[in-house]
Design a protein around this nucleic acid. Structure first.
Length: 400
RNA sequence: CGGGGCGUAGUAUAGCGGCAGUAUAUGUGCUUUGGGAGCACAAGGUUCGAGUUCGAUUCUCGGCGCCCCGACCA
């Protein structure tokens, strides 16, 4: 894509109402726009990152054998009364509309359990795994930390329906592995820990994926650095290393709480009626994106990991004389299905470098007098600042 | 929800009870072109309401909005 056609542009100044690094950088670079406190729109560059994250998660969910659906945001009061989660005294983050008779979903155990009750009646129908990507609405009294904790945010939620606790535990562990892959691919695997936590209002034990980050709201105690295991702070502190962290994912065993309340039963081999054993597994996409910005950016701007970068290559054409060659490189890269942001604007070199560093695409291809003379490309690594000279052919081979 | 702070141009800021200034961004022209260039001209602003006052962007009260700390976070 030609950068001259991109409707967003970068800003030198940070917006005065943002303190968090993720919001400052993403706003300055033109990835997001704040609509109101805790509510952000995603602009072309930001949406590209969000979609890359979504696709990584989708691949890993499909790999688990889960099937994608899309539930509604509007929620039925009667259904939620069955699980005692409609009352504002029980759940204080509901956005309710239509005189309080409808709500905007903050999670989706209830509606999905009801759907499954329509289709699951035998042990032969189980296990079943279903997931979706959807905006959740949570009326947080205090939104904060940029896109890390909003009132409306895109979340992947996966739900598992199993015959027995053993079957559930088996899948639960597979999800853990899938999540590790997701966070590795998103570039924060080496600082993300599997933390044991109390299960919140669901009771018992649950697990959180916590990424070490100074901007985090949580604290974890690292119990095994090599295995990246940790404990949430409320569970026994024994001279362990405490770190601030961000909860980038969670997995909850739900037991039979929802299936009993809503009536999701199956007949086992002996013809006996049993409640389905459930689990739920969430990842906030915006929070994950914000966390990546928080932990990987530097003074100059954002540094995207390869797999979630809005583009693979940022092509900088530094002068009028470099235009013809740059156009040709742009065409060739795109013909090879490589995503390129081509800075074809009529600006000085310094401004293009500053913008490229702010936007954070991992590889910059710089075409100026040098490369015109040598007929090779100058390829700069955004993270390390190192440059290499290589032919277009070699670059393409490296990227494919 | 408790506490604190802040609302001035697209953005970031200064200032003042009496014609609102700067930077940047924007438009035009000229110069410039490997790390956010320079000059000139132009266009663009006081969150809303009430009160005090001859006069309010400034002072008082209220609304709305935003930020921070805490509480909360399925």
């Amino acid at each position: 894509m030609k950068q001259s056609q991109l409707f967003t542009k970068t800003r030198r100044e940070a917006p005065k109402d943002e303190i968090s690094k993720n919001a400052i950088l993403l706003t300055r670079a033109g990835f997001i726009h704040k609509e109101m406190a805790g509510v952000y729109s995603y602009l072309p560059l930001g949406l590209r990152v969000l979609k890359k994250i979504e696709n990584i998660i989708r691949e890993e969910m499909n790999e688990l054998g889960a099937q994608e659906i899309e539930l509604t945001a509007l929620q039925d009061k009667n259904l939620w009364e069955k699980t005692n989660r409609w009352d504002d005294k029980i759940v204080d983050i509901w956005f309710k509309i239509a005189d309080g008779n409808l709500g905007l979903g903050f999670t989706h155990e209830e509606p999905l359990t009801r759907i499954m009750a329509e289709y699951i009646s035998s042990y032969r129908d189980l296990p079943a795994y279903v997931y979706q990507f959807q905006n959740k609405f949570r009326n947080e009294l205090r939104a904060k930390s940029g896109i890390m904790r909003g009132k409306e945010f895109l979340m992947k939620d996966l739900y598992s329906f199993s015959r027995t606790e053993e079957e559930h535990a088996n899948f639960y562990n597979k999800v853990k592995v899938a999540y590790e892959k997701i966070f590795n691919r998103a570039g924060i695997g080496n600082r993300t820990y599997f933390a044991t936590a109390s299960g919140g209002s669901f009771g018992n034990i649950s697990h959180e994926f916590q990424t070490i980050c100074d901007a985090g709201e949580d604290s974890i105690y690292i119990t095994n650095k090599e295995k990246r295991e940790a404990k949430n702070k409320e569970l026994g502190i024994e001279n362990l290393e405490e770190k601030k962290s961000v909860e980038v994912g969670n997995i909850f065993p739900l037991g039979i709480r929802f299936s009993e309340a809503i009536g999701l039963y199956f007949k086992d081999e002996n013809g006996e009626n049993k409640p389905v054993v459930m689990g739920s597994y969430g990842i906030g996409l915006g929070r994950l994106m914000g966390t990546v910005v928080e932990v990987l950016s530097d003074k100059k701007g954002i540094v995207w990991p390869r797999e979630i970068s809005p583009f693979s290559i940022h092509l900088l054409s530094l002068s009028e004389s470099a235009k013809a060659f740059s156009d040709e490189v742009h065409k060739t890269l795109e013909a090879n299905k490589i995503e390129v942001l081509y800075d074809d604007r009529d600006l000085r070199a310094g401004e293009k470098f500053a913008d490229a560093d702010l936007i954070g695409i991992p590889a910059q291809v710089i075409i100026g007098e040098k490369s015109l003379a040598s007929k090779t490309l100058e390829v700069k690594n955004r993270a390390s600042g190192e440059t290499r000279e290589m032919t277009l052919e070699n670059l393409i081979n490296e990227l494919i």
